[in-house]
Structures are given as C-alpha cells and as structure tokens.
Amino acid sequence: MRPVYEKYFRDNIPHIWCAGCGNGIVMSAFARAIEKLGYDQDDVMVVSGIGCSSRMTTYIDFNTLHTAHGRALAFATGAKLSEPRLKMFVIMGDGDAAAIGGNHFIHSCRRNIDITAIIINNAIYGMTGGQYSPLTPTGKKATTAPYGNIDRAFDIVELSRGAGATYVARGDIYHAAQLTNQIVDAANHKGFSVLEVVSTCPISYGRYNKMPKPTDMMQYIKDNTVSVQKAATMTADELKDKIIIGEHFKIENVPEYTEEHNKLVAEVKKDYLEKLKGGAK
C-alpha cells in the first residue's frame, strides 16, 4: 500500500516522540487503516487521554479531542451516544487505560458501545520518565520499582473479556502490516472493540530492563510474540512470558449501546406522542 500520510497527518510535525518509540508505527498503521476502511475524515473522531501515545491526536487530521488522564473513554461515550454517526476511536496508553482510566474502561466494555479503543501498551509511564504501570510485568524495573516490580500485571484480553467486551485483539508494532488490518477489523466490529498494541519505550523502559537500544526492544517483540492459532497448540509452560497476538475473541449479536438507546428513545417518544394525541382518554 502506498503511504497515505500526507492525507491523514497534520503539518505540525515534528512530534514529541523519542527515537525508537513505537507510537509512530501505530500512527501510520492507523492512517493506513482509515484509508482501507474508506472513512471520510470528517466522520472520524479520535479521542485520547494523557501520555505520550495520546499526543497522537495532535498529529492526525480528524476531529480530535485530547482530554484528561484516563478520561478519554468517558468523553468518547458522551460524544458517541449523542452523535452515533461518528466513527469513534479512542487512543490510550497502558497507564491511561488500565490504571487511572480503569473504571471507564471496564464500564465501556460492559456497555458495548460502538467505540474502537486502541491501547498502546509500552508497559511503562513513558512521559513521566519510566514509572511502573498496571501492565508492567512482575520483576521488571522502573524508576519507581528500582529493585524490581512486585505488582502483578493485568492481562488486557482477560480483563476485557471479564468486563463484557465483544471484541478483543492484540497486536504489536513489529507486525505493522498486521496491525493495520487489526485496526480495520476492530473498527468493523459493531460494539466495543479493544485492540491492545504491544509497543516499545527504549528510553523509559528498555534502558532499565537490559534493552537499551530500540532494536533490542523490537527484537524482543519479534522473539516473544506468538499467534493466537499457534498458541492454541502450545502448553502453558511454553506460553510463559509470550505475547499472544491476533484476534482473541469476537462475540456477535450482543446489543450495541447506542442502538439500544436510540431504540428505547424512539419507542418512548412514540408512546408519548400517542398519549398526547389521545388527550384525556
């Protein structure tokens, strides 16, 4: 596919991202995905929270809303419910989505509102310089876990499943072409779609965890990702510390929130108008 950057990127580059950061790969995959989906830019709204990845809304040419830390899904829910015709994407980091925004995340899963949530997971708070997040693996180092992280990490796939999401996939920045298709598939799913993108932060994560060069982190992702299909043939021991990529689950025919809402409003409105017409009857 030809690059589509000019069409979808605003001219306020240079961006803030460090060399070797994975955010740019996700951003270009996003642009290619929108091109594939054939969406009119005017109909696409992208909402983000706070963090390195959330700055993406500055650079891409859509209706963009850069909100507060953790709250992107709350803003997006209000916008989507009131204007369901908008194609709604939410870009969050791992801390943004799973820590401070965890409540909004599980409730968005539960409502099954037609939003595509892209969680760029670099396993660290990058913007603030490398503190552990709920997606930092146990034992890894961070500036706030200098002796190793004792916290257990969330598994976004299982968290989403438990909370009632109807579509969950995991991608990564090494498999950029697949990532484009995953964004397309997530967007095409009617309901709340979660796409976790395993990414890199060489500066604030890699340096503390024996992967100081961007290529070290890329190599790590390349070596440790296995597809959902292959994972099905592997034992739990073999899967330890592996990143399982691909579509984890997709549940069709679960009522979508804005449709249910509009159906209810239409019925109540109709009954009410009939009652008014009926007068004192």
Binding site: F75, G78, L81, S82, H104, H107, H261
Partner: peptide, 21 residues
C-alpha cells in the same frame, strides 16, 4: 439523551464530550 455513568468524573467527561459534538 440520558445516560447514567460509572462515577462523577465519567459523568462530567461524557457531558463535555457531548458538548464538543
């Protein structure tokens, strides 16, 4: 449109979101 949100932060967030559109 009426929606009951998961907390007050979400409530004002959704309201601002709806206002932006």
């Amino acid at each position: 449109h009426f929606i009951q949100m998961e907390d007050e932060i979400a409530s004002i967030g959704a309201a601002i979101g709806a206002s932006t559109v």
